[in-house]
Design a protein around this nucleic acid. Structure first.
Length: 209
DNA sequence: CAGAGGATCGGCT
DNA sequence: GCCGATCCTCTGG
C-alpha cells in the first residue's frame, strides 16, 4: 500500500480516469476517524467536452477544474448532493474525473453513521452523492491538493481489475460518449444494469449484508 | 433580478 | 421505471 503523489498519475483525463479504477480513496475525518474505499467507477470530463462543467470557461464554481492535475473539485448539485472529482490536465485547462462508486473497505461503521439511516454495504458508496455523504465531503474540500492534503488522499495496492466502459450517467449533452469506466464484475457499481452488463446480479439475499 | 436547469437520491407505483 | 424535492449557479435582460 503506497500513497499516490502527483508525479505517479497520468496527466491526460481519459488515461487518468482508467488509472483510477482499482485505486483506494482515504479520508481522515475531523475527529481523526478513518475510512477508505476502492474506486470501481468513474467518469471522464476532458477538454472540449460539451458535458463538462468547464466547457463554457472558468467560473467561481468550477475553478478547481482549472488547477493543476490531482486537486479535488467538489460541487453541490440538485439541492441535495455533493460530487467528488479529481482535476486532470495541466494548470489552466479545465478538466476532471468524477468519482462515481467505491467498494467499501475500512471504516464501514463510520461511513454508515454519516449516511444517516441504515443502509446496506452494497448501497453505502454506490453513487457520487452517496460517496460524499458517507465520507463527509463538501465544499470545504474543494481545491484540496491530493498530493499533500491530510484529510483526503489516494493510494494503490497493486490491484488492477479489467476495465469496462459505457456512456455516462445523467447527462443531456454529449450523452453518447463512452467516458464512463468501471471495474468489470464489481458488485458496487451505480447506474442501470445495461451500462455494466458484467455486474453480478444483486438479489435480496445479498442486500442482507 | 428572474428563470431555468442540473455529472442525484429516495420513495412510490 | 418515474417523479418530485431542493437549492445553487449561471445566463440573459
Amino acid at each position: 500500500m503506497r500513497r499516490l503523489r502527483r508525479t505517479d498519475v497520468p496527466l491526460a483525463t481519459d488515461a487518468f480516469a482508467r488509472f483510477l479504477i482499482g485505486k483506494i480513496v482515504f479520508r481522515r475525518f475531523d475527529d481523526g476517524a478513518m475510512a477508505s474505499g476502492r474506486i470501481v467507477e468513474v467518469e471522464a470530463y476532458g477538454p472540449g467536452d460539451a458535458a463538462s462543467h468547464a466547457f463554457r470557461g472558468r467560473t467561481p464554481r468550477n475553478s478547481s477544474m482549472f488547477l493543476a492535475n490531482f486537486h479535488a473539485y467538489v460541487y453541490f448539485i440538485y439541492g441535495s448532493a455533493f460530487c467528488l472529482n479529481i482535476s486532470s490536465e495541466a494548470a489552466g485547462t479545465g478538466a476532471a474525473v468524477l468519482i462515481r462508486a467505491l467498494e467499501p473497505l475500512d471504516g464501514r461503521a463510520e461511513m454508515q453513521v454519516r449516511r444517516g439511516s441504515a443502509v446496506s454495504i452494497l448501497d453505502l458508496l454506490r453513487g457520487p452523492g452517496r460517496i460524499c455523504a458517507a465520507l463527509t465531503i463538501d465544499r470545504r474540500l474543494d481545491g484540496a491538493d491530493l498530493d499533500t492534503d491530510e484529510r483526503l488522499w489516494l493510494a494503490q495496492d497493486g490491484y488492477a481489475p479489467p476495465i469496462g466502459s459505457s456512456t455516462r450517467i445523467g447527462l443531456s449533452r454529449a450523452a453518447d460518449l463512452n467516458h464512463r469506466y468501471y471495474a468489470c464484475g464489481s458488485r458496487y457499481l451505480s447506474g442501470r444494469r445495461a451500462l455494466s452488463p458484467d455486474r453480478p446480479f444483486i438479489g435480496s439475499s445479498d442486500l442482507a449484508n
